[in-house]
């Protein structure tokens, strides 16, 4: 279970997170939606400490810490319990698809090359990329890169996978193959937190959907609640705009 309490983050004069609380139960998929600049990605990056929150408490499974106590040791522990899938893939370009998956297993988790290979082959197959295992990222399409990135995250066996707009950098025709893989992962009860602009997808796979606006979670609920009957005016406005439910006034 992941629990975030009162997370605040400021860049210079810009307060990006204004005290965010969020709980993701084990096996749940939670989606974060909201306009650009509402702090969704920053929140995600505060969980694996790519950004250091200024205030607040975070607990990830057996690890709990306060923003004030973050040091190298806490960072290492938090990152061992999380994995992230980036918008721009972030594959290691000097490693093949399979090596990308195996890398952290060997270097961070200190598995033997044989163990890492076995796990790597298992996960590359799960994302349907076994035929491309010896390809370098430069030879893969965006969708294929993202599937490898997902396999890399899964192979770490993290407590939670953080997806940061995993389909935003993809050509439209490649979005579906990646969404299918994420959906499969979600159905296997992997704990996930997804920042996404794919509303239909969020509605489809999420146990809970949270709407973020101006550095706060304004509303959180089941997809039915949030999409069907949003309580907040701003949520409604956002969804109307996003789902193109315009009211035309001529």
């Amino acid at each position: 279970m992941i629990e975030i309490k009162g997370i605040k983050k400021r860049f210079r004069n810009n307060e990006v997170l204004k005290g965010v609380d969020l709980t993701v139960e084990e096996g749940q998929t939670v989606s974060l939606i909201g306009s650009s600049g509402s702090g969704k990605s920053t929140l995600l990056r505060c969980i694996n400490l790519l950004e250091t929150p200024d205030e607040g408490k975070i607990s990830i499974a057996d690890l709990s810490f306060d923003a004030k106590e973050i040091n190298r040791n806490v960072r290492a522990k938090a990152r061992r319990r999380t994995a992230m899938v980036f918008q721009n893939f972030g594959l290691f370009e000097n490693k093949t698809a399979l090596e990308n998956i195996m890398e952290a297993l060997i270097v961070v988790q200190k598995k033997t090359p044989a163990e890492a290979l076995e796990i790597g082959l298992d996960y590359i197959e799960r994302v349907g990329m076994e035929d491309h295992r010896n390809h370098y990222p430069q030879a893969l399409s965006g969708g294929q890169k993202q599937r490898i990135a997902i396999a890399r995250a899964l192979a770490l066996d993290p407590k939670i996978i953080l997806f940061d707009e995993p389909t935003s950098a993809l050509d439209p025709e490649l979005v579906q193959e990646v969404l299918n893989v994420i959906k499969k992962v979600s159905n296997e009860r992997t704990t996930m937190l997804i920042v996404t602009h794919e509303m239909d997808f969020a509605r489809d796979i999420s146990d809970k959907v949270a709407f973020m606006s101006e550095g706060q979670i304004l509303e959180i609920g089941t997809p039915q609640e949030l999409f069907g009957n949003p309580k907040e005016e701003r949520t409604r406005q956002f969804l109307d705009r996003y789902l193109q439910r315009f009211t035309y006034v001529i």
Partner: peptide, 21 residues
């Protein structure tokens, strides 16, 4: 830079990311 962030996100230290990636 994204590769370095990815390296951190999978748990590598600064030096490991430097040396391996």
């Amino acid at each position: 830079k994204i590769q370095i962030e990815a390296a951190y996100s999978v748990g590598m230290t600064t030096w490991q990311a430097m040396r391996r990636i």
